[in-house]
Structures are given as C-alpha cells and as structure tokens.
Computed example of a mutant assay.
Amino acid sequence: MGWAEFEQVKSEYTDFYKKIDEEIIRLLCERKAAAKGKRYSPPAELLEEWSQKYKMKVSEIGWLMHELNDGSGPFYMPEGPGELLGVIQIMKKSTVGDFDYILTHAMQHEHGSIVTLEINYKNKENENIGHIIPHLMLEITGPTEYKVAKKGSRGGGGNTQMGFLISPPLPSDLTEIHFALIPYAPPMEFPPKEVVLDQEVIFRKS
C-alpha cells in the first residue's frame, strides 16, 4: 500500500463561532496584559454569583480562573519531577461540612514537589457516601510563583487521596507558603463511562 495524504477534516465552523472565538482570544490577551504575570482570583461570593447568573458550576468557573492565572507562563517538566531528594511534613488540616481535608506531606524531587491531600468523610458510620469525586485544585502562594497540576486520585468508601505536582519545588521552610483548595472542574469534561457487571458467572470444571 502506498502513501496517501491526510484528508481535510470537514468543519461546520461559521462566522457565528468565529465572532465568539475571536472575542474570547481578544479578552484573554487583554487580561494577560493587565495581570502582568500576577495571579488574580475572584472571591468565593463572586464565584457563586456568576454560577447563578450564567448557569455554570462553581468548579467550572474555578477551572477557568485557574487556567487564566496559570497562563502567565508554561509548566515545563518534560522529564517528570526527577530524582527523589527528601520528604517535607506539611500536616495542615481543615474541616468543611462533613469532610476533613489534610495536606500530609510533600515528596521533594529534583525538578518539583508532589503534595498529597487526603479527604475523609467524618460521618461514615451513619451514612454510606459511596465514591467521592473531588473537583478541587491546590493553590499555592508565597514569595515564588508556583504552578500546580493534578497528579491522580484514588480512594473509596468515604476516603480519597489526591496528588499535586508543584513547580518549582517547595522550600524546606514553609513559613511563608500558603495552601488553599479551589473548586476546579473542566467544563467540557465528560464523566467516565460506567460499566455495570451484574450477570451470573459460573466457573466450570476443566
């Protein structure tokens, strides 16, 4: 079989979408120029107001704000965090509603840090909560500008654990470092497909 060129992808892109997209790009450039590399995030009350006004989830607006702030520069870590150098204890705990949020430690690597967050449901003896879906992102502020990316999550039965990749690495002294969790969920993200296995399975003798 010989080589063939890629076919042009069929597009239904119209002037209607062009006008909207161009305005989005113009506003992104305007905000980036005004911010001058600094991070600006709206307060929780304003996020709630916008959520009601525009019929969006707070976590979706939080995702957009995080992306706008992180757009001040690229997140370079092409070869991963690198060699493990040590561990820093964080041990910060906050309780919101029926959940405990605990930042336990940071694995210190050559090119970045990996921070672990544990989320525990406090009233699991009284109610079966099922699977926790954390639409959250870690925000870090301090003398240095930090970039944060999610690094997986796992758990069940009212408990879950999340990892966050931080660049540059956190300092050994965390006195001037402040941690917070913000609502964060990409608005176009589709929920994972669920497959229910409920048929009888019989293992027969060989």
Rank of each mutant, 00 (worst) to 15 (best):
Y13S: 12
E48V: 08
I140W: 01
F203L: 11
L117M: 04
I102R: 09
T160G: 00
R154M: 11
V115G: 00
Y76N: 13
H178Q: 07
E145F: 07
D198S: 14
A180C: 03
S172W: 09
G80D: 02
F164K: 00
K193W: 10
P191I: 02
L197D: 14
E45K: 05
K55Y: 09
I129H: 00
I102F: 11
K38C: 12
D15W: 14
K124Q: 14
H178I: 03
E45V: 06
M91S: 08
E139G: 11
L197C: 12
I166H: 00
P191F: 02
G71V: 03
K151P: 01
G158D: 04
M65F: 15
K38R: 14
G37T: 04
Y184M: 03
V148C: 01
L68N: 12
L197E: 13
G62I: 05
R154Y: 08
T160I: 02
V58H: 13
K57D: 10
G158W: 00
G80L: 01
I102V: 13
A44N: 08
P169K: 00
F16Q: 15
I20Q: 10
H111E: 10
S51M: 13
D198K: 15
E83G: 13
V58W: 08
V195N: 11
D70K: 07
R26Y: 10
R31L: 14
N128R: 15
K147P: 00
M162F: 01
L136C: 01
E176G: 01
A180Q: 05
E189R: 07
P43Q: 05
M107E: 14
G62Q: 07
T175V: 04
L27A: 11
A185L: 10
S113T: 06
T104H: 07
F203C: 12
R204Q: 09
M56S: 12
R154Q: 09
T95M: 08
D198P: 06
D198A: 11
K147Q: 07
E118I: 04
L28V: 09
F190G: 11
N126Q: 15
A33T: 10
E22A: 12
I132K: 04
F16A: 14
E60P: 08
F203Y: 15
